[in-house]
């Protein structure tokens, strides 16, 4: 397997990583960089647990090859809180009891943050649409929808938010 040296900005820091051609962005984050907050639920782009920002857009990181990320900017769930200050969407998810097992939560948070970045005042239908690719087996979703709605009301705290 051919290996490639890529340079990628992950959560604001420039990383030089040696990756095989077939390695996904998800595997690179988890196994090369030890960023295990991003979860692997299906390796097929179906569950959304591995959602991260790639150049500001939410993507299923299990469907992106690491080599494609040479020169790119990636942000994961670990970037949402800054200096101990939670992103409003994180706080809102806690406040609404919208987390149970927590395995889908990192992906949900990224999809929600991406929605709020492009649409600060989404309707319930827009929230449902934005999260339809993030499967959750525990919560029944309504708490998550309400958490996003409330986070929109609060807006993004200074210095937090997605990669804009």
């Amino acid at each position: 397997m051919a290996h490639h040296k890529i340079s990628v900005t992950v959560n604001g820091s420039v990383e030089s990583v040696d990756v095989p051609s077939n390695m996904t962005l998800l595997t690179m984050l988890r196994e090369k960089l030890g960023l295990t907050g991003t979860k692997n639920g299906c390796t097929a782009g179906e569950c959304g647990a591995c959602t991260v920002f790639l150049n500001g857009e939410p993507v299923n990181s299990c469907l992106v090859l690491a080599v494609e990320c040479d020169g790119a900017e990636v942000r994961t769930v670990e970037s949402l809180a800054r200096n101990g200050q939670l992103d409003p969407i994180q706080q809102s998810v806690i406040d609404h009891n919208a987390v149970q097992c927590g395995f889908c939560t990192p992906g949900v948070l990224i999809s929600a943050r991406a929605l709020l970045d492009r649409n600060p005042d989404p309707t319930e239908e827009e929230i449902r649409d934005a999260l339809v690719g993030n499967l959750c087996r525990c919560t029944g979703y309504i708490r998550i929808l309400d958490a996003v709605k409330d986070a929109a009301r609060v807006g993004a705290a200074p210095g937090t938010g997605g990669s804009r």
């Binding site: 960023l35 295990t36 907050g37 769930v77 939670l86 998810v93 806690i94 987390v99 927590g102 990192p106």
Partner: peptide, 15 residues
């Protein structure tokens, strides 16, 4: 508030 909520929203919770 759930004891595990904070670590589960930051990605720190270990599976």
């Amino acid at each position: 508030t759930r004891l595990d909520a904070h670590e589960k929203v930051t990605g720190e919770a270990v599976f």
